[in-house]
Design a protein around this nucleic acid. Structure first.
Lengths: 112, 112, 112, 112
DNA sequence: TTTT
DNA sequence: TTTT
């Protein structure tokens, strides 16, 4: 609940249409991948332009909003929490995934 | 450079002493792992208490600060950028790592 | 509701004990003043150390928390919204007040 | 310098064209007023829609950007610090002003 | 004084 | 009016 202990804010563009699943009768979840076009300083003090990709997870009302209004290329601003989880893939290799559990979303740019 | 496009803020406790490396003659980098004790709602609407672990990377002045003042159990507040990179491990498996590149750090709690 | 449109985060020290009022039977409101010790660059590019004072307003659960646990000198971290309102003072002069409506609060530093 | 101690983020619309002044030979400052359309819960737990107006101050590069690209109605996202100052007006009344000293700015919405 |  |  506390935004002060774990908070992520991103502004970026969807790399693909949202993947939306319905769980049971009325739970809905959407997975979104967004790119942030960023610049930072590397270990040599050089400014590096870099695109970072982020995995977002949206539930319920926000999942419905993604399903209805967001498409590949849409620009959004989000706030959420940084979460990590692990799973074992088909080859038996343990994998780690970091995702942003979105709690607030604003659509930016051109309204289609 | 833009905090508005990619920004993470965390308050939490170090799980271990910082790992500090010196690169070349005067570059320094520190790796830190912190736990945020967090609560959120799962897909059933239940409140879940969960500890999340985050990998932080600090360069130069901030790395020196970590080396000198931070230890396992220290409480800190940080701001930074969410970054991801991939590498191939010893078994030839491609791995993804998500890290926070720290740009601001405050020490909290008891000063030792 | 949207943290993305209007969000303030402050870490600082209470200048006085909280002023707490009860409204009607069960509404409670607390007013707090905190100092942030800050540095920024002025119009000459000089770094200026400056203390800023901020007026915080807390309702209900957060007001109770302030009443019970916060005192002059306490260090806190808060998130909230920037709000302004005007009123006419005793001399008939229109006054403007800017306050932060607090939505999240963490106590920092020494626990008494 | 520390974003962690004093940080404001706003997304909103300019109420007027920026007021830009040149100070001395090469210092430039811009004053902007933006509206955030916000909702919060009042003391009765009712959701209140409210427009808040905020005074922004931009120096140098950001002032030039405002002068060249921002107009009444433009939508922007900003990060900055909350600052307050007082002055005595023509009638001899002491006035307090709260402003956001902007450190980062993104233009949103339709590009004219 | 803005905008959806 | 706070604190480091």
């Amino acid at each position: 609940m506390s935004n002060l202990r774990n908070s992520v804010r991103l502004m970026g563009f969807l790399g693909n249409d949202p993947e939306v699943k319905t769980i049971g009768e009325k739970k809905k979840v959407a997975n979104i991948s967004i790119a942030t076009n960023d610049s930072y300083k590397n270990d040599k003090g050089e400014k590096v332009e870099e695109t970072q990709w982020h995995n977002l997870v949206l539930w319920d009302r926000l999942a419905g909003l993604a399903e209805n209004y967001l498409r590949k290329g849409s620009e959004i601003s989000v706030e959420g929490k940084l979460t990590s989880r692990s799973y074992t893939d088909k080859e038996g290799v343990k994998r780690y995934v970091t995702e942003i559990l979105v709690s607030d979303l604003q659509m930016l740019g051109k309204k289609p």
